[in-house]
Every structure is written in structure tokens, then in C-alpha cells.
Write a protein that binds this DNA or RNA. Structure first.
Lengths: 149, 149
DNA sequence: TATTGTTATACTCTATAACTATA
DNA sequence: TATAGTTATAGAGTATAACAATA
């Protein structure tokens, strides 16, 4: 989304300029995350599932809602990951319709390793900032994308 | 990639904390972009193709390299977009092997509309920042993800 | 009646392998 | 020989529609 629109030159509010570089940083990050996932024969979505389940046990429907996917899509994703021994399903005792998903030992191990690889793979980017700048950037990103949104 | 790792509490360098919120902001942005794309019956990759071609005419191989895709994948993406009348292919006069891709009038019109929708759809997030904060965030993101990386 | 999850189906996205044409 | 692009193939990701079981 890089443009050379002349209207951008007098962008006093910084909206358009921020959007350009935000989109650029987004695809840089997606590329890094996808690379780490691919190195482990995972899709980006599978990586996200492992990350979500790292410290939680959740219902199929909650997983689908959080990822913005249809429940039928979740069934396929979970089935393939289950076949690989990364996670498992169990009926929810409190609701006969619901199914809970959780990591196996092997899945938890992989999730931990993935997190370390992500930190390493992003460090060339984050390392371009001084510690104080990193904290400032984190604060601004949290304000922009934070809990409220 | 949100965690409650106690090691994070004493993260004086801000590395891990930045990574968490960067990944969160990344998926927020991807969700917004994917939503805009889906509203126009496009995939996120197709939207990126239109954005790249907005002010350029590029070779198939350059497009594939920029997006990190195989050339055969580009052939399919471009063929489907061409079938919809959004872009076209033409042989490169300077190299008999090469093919250049460029937007049609209809494709350029859509690309412009998409950009406006993206600005609108991201504004709830960017609007949480004051103009000076937006400029500061843009500068930090540029430094982190900028031209060098 | 509404919700949860699965299955069947169809299409897009993606990479690998094999191929043609050009450099 | 190497590069540019396409085609064939196969598998993963995705949504829609229809369904069964439970609430």
C-alpha cells in the first residue's frame, strides 16, 4: 500500500501516512510469522491456534469466533492438527453440545519452541529500535490496537 | 500470541512486550484488510496485487518475488483477476520471456475505492491516537520495518 | 427454537514438478 | 545453462448448506 499520492504530502493529521507504514509493518510481520510456521509445516492459522491454546482450553466455537472463521473451518483445522498429535478434543462436561480443544504435551512443546523462534525472527526488526523506543512503540500500538479494539 | 509469562514482567529491554503487541496489531490489521477484500470478493493476496499495481506495471516474476509466492501461484492469481477484468497481461517488448501485468480501468477504479475503504476501516484504530502520536507511531514503525527491512 | 459441532461440497490459495520458449 | 512463465496435480484453507444432538 505504498503510494506517491500528492495529497499525502500535506497530511497534517498523519492518518494516511500511518496507514501506509502500518500496512507495510503488518505484511513484514505476517511474512516472518508465516516463515516460522512454514518451517514447522504449519499454516499461519495453525500457528495462531497453537498460540491461543498455549495457556487456555477453549471451545471450538470460541476458537472460530476469535479467529474470525466459520465453525466448519475450525473442524477441519483442528482435525488436521489433532491427526498430527498437536492437540486433542474432549466433550465439555457442562454442555453436551460443546467440545473443548487443548494442546497435547507435544503441541505445548512445539508452541513454546515457536514462540522462541518468533522472537528470534522478529529481532532484526525490533533490534533496530533502542529499548526506550521499543517501549514507546509498544505503548502506541497498545493504545491503537489495544484491549478496546 | 498473548501470554502471561512471568519472565515478561522484568522485560527491561521491551523486546518480548513489543512482540506481543506487534503481533496483536498485525492480526487486527490483517482482519481489517481481509474484511475489506472479502467485501469486494477478493482475497487478501488479490487486494495486495491491486495495491502494488496501482502505480506500477510489473513482471509476473517481480510480483511473485515481492509477495513471496511461487511463480505458478502468481499465474493462477493473475488469471482469475484477469478473468474478472481487473488486470491484464502483455508481453514485455524488451524480453521475449517476460510478461508484464497492469491494472485495467476497472481494476484501477476498484483499487482506488479499496484504498478509501481501508482508510475508513482502520480509522477506528488510528483515530485512538492524537495526530502527534500518529506521526510518532509512523516514524517508529518506519524505523522498525522500513526500507532497510 | 436456538446453539454446537460435523460433514459434504465447491472454490481459492499454495507449492512441486514438468514443460516450453527465450536469453 | 539459466530464466520467465504456464500447466497439471495435490493438498490445505475457506465458506455455504444441510444435518444431528443438545439446550
Amino acid at each position: 500500500m505504498t503510494t506517491s499520492d500528492p495529497a499525502r504530502d500535506s497530511d497534517a493529521s498523519g492518518q494516511a501516512e500511518l496507514i501506509d507504514v502500518l500496512v507495510q509493518a503488518t505484511f513484514m510481520t505476517v511474512a516472518v510469522l508465516s516463515g516460522v510456521a512454514a518451517d514447522n509445516d504449519l499454516s499461519l492459522t495453525q500457528l495462531r491456534v497453537l498460540a491461543i491454546l498455549r495457556d487456555r482450553r477453549v471451545r471450538m466455537s470460541a476458537l472460530a469466533a476469535y479467529l474470525g472463521l466459520d465453525r466448519s473451518t475450525m473442524s477441519g483445522l483442528v482435525e488436521r492438527a489433532e491427526k498430527r498429535g498437536l492437540l486433542a478434543r474432549a466433550p465439555d462436561p457442562s454442555d453436551g453440545r460443546a467440545v473443548e480443544v487443548f494442546l497435547t504435551g507435544s503441541g505445548a512443546e512445539l508452541a513454546g519452541a515457536l514462540y522462541i523462534r518468533i522472537e528470534q525472527s522478529l529481532s532484526p526488526a525490533t533490534g533496530r529500535l533502542a529499548p526506550a523506543e521499543r517501549r514507546r512503540l509498544a505503548a502506541l500500538l497498545r493504545q491503537m490496537a489495544g484491549p478496546e479494539g
